[in-house]
Amino acid sequence: MSQSTMAIGRRERVSEHARTFVSRHASMMPTFAALLIFVLLLIGAQIHFGEFVTPRTLSALLLDNAYLVILAVGMTMVIVTGGIDLSVGSVMAFTGISCAALLDAGYPAVLVVPGIVVAGGLIGLLVGVLVQYFDVQPFIASLAGLFLGRGLAFVVSLKSIRVEDDAVLWLQTTRYRFGDWYITPTGILALVVALLGAFVMQYTRFGRTIYAVGGNEQSARLMGLAVARTKVLVYVISGLCGGLAGLVLTAYSGAGYPRNGIGTELDVIAAVVIGGTLLTGGTGYILGSVIGVLVYGTIKTVISYMGAEQSWTRIIVGLMLLSFIVVQRVIVVRAERRR
């Protein structure tokens, strides 16, 4: 008798804890869902192909999607403020082709690499200033960034340019091995950017201001937070990430190509949303977005394993995006009903 009441008491306490956890971390639930989907995807692929979850495929997953991870970090910050950055794909193309062209012209990598990253940041700065100081909607301002980046990429070169620079190629060809696992400097770069981003979002005032702006910009301003600086800075960061992604993609493909990254902004937005960030702003996690990218990458890998058309990737990502937003919508509606 007393034992069973104790058991009940413990169970109640556990469920009480669970409820507190859920109420405190309700915003993390979509990210957990993304993680679950990622795991299920891996398990499903493992069962179907017999050999999928191997150190080799998983290592390749990070390698193939390093540039997306970097872009997703900047995009998450922008989206959490309630904005959007359509320019990332073409900024990546512009910085990538510039990198290849400048190296080809004989400039040393130590100058070229910081140069192109800063160039990406400058386009981000332009977008941020338009958004913050001229009240331009993020969609339109970053559209200007998209046009600018894409056009400049073609101004630099209409054709693809091969990269012969050892330093840049080193980023891709070096493999640090741990048994069958390996990681490239580009992969390390992506992970460092992601961890740094997650730290900034969670443990700095700048990061918390990003959330505050996304929650209620007017409030954030009246609370005396540095709203203007924060909003400009997230676009600059997104631009810097675009520059970095340009470097990584150029290293990855061994060449710069002005048509790179057409539509990549959509892949990134999709990955970020799948990772649990709400496009309305205020909620989202960098690590969630990384999971979103991995889900995206896994789908791509699975499709190439199946030997199916790559066009299926976007169809499936589209459908997955759909199911995610429908589920998010249901959660929001239910939360509204409860109030």
Partner: peptide, 10 residues
């Protein structure tokens, strides 16, 4: 303020 100027998501 009348309309609470805080951030509901935090």
């Amino acid at each position: 303020y009348q309309e609470i100027n805080l951030c509901p998501n935090l």
